Amino acid sequence: MTERTYSAPHGGHPPQTDLLTDRAMFTEAYAVIPRGTMRDIVTSRLPFWDDTRLWVLARPLSGFAETFSQYIMEVGPGGGSDRPETASGVEGVLFLMEGALTLTLEGEEHELVPGGYAYLPPESEWTVRNHGGEPARFHWIRKAYEYVRGIEVPEPVVANEQDVEPTPMPGTNGRWATTRFVDPDDVRHDMHVTIVTFEPGGVIPFAETHVMEHGLYVLEGKAVYRLNQDWVEVEAGDFMWLRAFCPQACYAGGPGRFRYLLYKDVHRQMKLA
């Protein structure tokens, strides 16, 4: 089994001697939040979470990306929440990068280790606790579930990417592959959170231009990403936030694999109101 690595922020502050120059940018079509911007000063807290802070990477904004929020959670030893989700009708995905986390979902305990994934259906009963000796750092992606009459709500899913075989994209000889935790054709799901992997030299060979919004968090490696009309260098720990129809492509220049956690909204009629 190939060893997986995950880049997670640890906060802190840069010294006064550092230059201000950075790769952070926010445009009408996309945003890039480099890892160096995820400092102590921009963390937040949430109600009913103990010994926990978070970085907010994305939230719905009118005229930009409107379907999801994405956090990086940092839960200290002994911390966690017995009431993590305070809104109704909200589904979620957890993806653990560092540490260990005990997830109790519908009364069943699951021990998440790095690479651990959990899909949390709307209105599900769940709690999380860090019983380890080190902070647990994980993504929490939230979306208001779009109910459809006659379509059942999906069941919970708990998995680890080490146990999921990536699916190569056709015609790429395995240079571009996607790790999928749920059936991509299952219309009960209105969002997908996957891991995309490029081997050195792998490319998205056209400018994808589509209705799905994206959150892309770089787990490993580096690449040059085409966003709208710009080529942007990104590396492990960076986050890219794309509104609908933002043209996108990438070139993984190496020397190692380029991997990112990807959110997109899927499988629903377009709202006309």
Rank of each mutant, 00 (worst) to 15 (best):
Y71A: 10
F258T: 03
M38D: 05
H131I: 02
E108A: 12
P14F: 09
E74L: 09
H13L: 14
T209I: 09
Q229T: 14
T5E: 11
L57I: 08
P121I: 03
P200C: 05
L120A: 07
V128S: 01
S44R: 13
E109K: 12
E220Y: 06
T104P: 04
I195L: 13
E220T: 10
P135M: 11
Q70H: 13
H267W: 09
T197E: 15
G63N: 09
N160C: 07
E146G: 03
T52Q: 13
E123I: 02
G171T: 01
P168Y: 02
T178W: 00
K271I: 11
N130R: 07
P205N: 15
A252Y: 03
R83S: 12
R83F: 13
G107Y: 04
A136D: 00
R35A: 15
P168F: 01
G78D: 00
I204C: 08
G76P: 00
A8D: 01
F26T: 12
K222S: 15
M191W: 06
E106K: 03
H210M: 11
G133S: 15
G80F: 04
T37E: 12
L96I: 10
D265R: 02
S69C: 04
E134V: 08
A244K: 14
G76C: 02
T67K: 13
A159D: 13
E123Y: 13
T86M: 14
P14R: 04
G76T: 00
L57G: 11
V113W: 01
G12K: 05
R149D: 15
V90R: 08
P9R: 00
D190I: 11
A136I: 03
W49S: 04
G133E: 15
G107D: 08
E220R: 14
H267G: 04
T27A: 02
E134H: 05
P135K: 14
V148C: 01
E74F: 00
P60C: 09
L20C: 06
A144M: 12
F48K: 11
V196S: 13
W176R: 15
E3M: 05
Q269H: 14
S7V: 11
A65S: 15
E109H: 02
D163S: 09
E125W: 00
V196K: 02
R59A: 15
Y117L: 10
L112G: 02
R39S: 01
P168G: 01
G256L: 07
A223S: 14
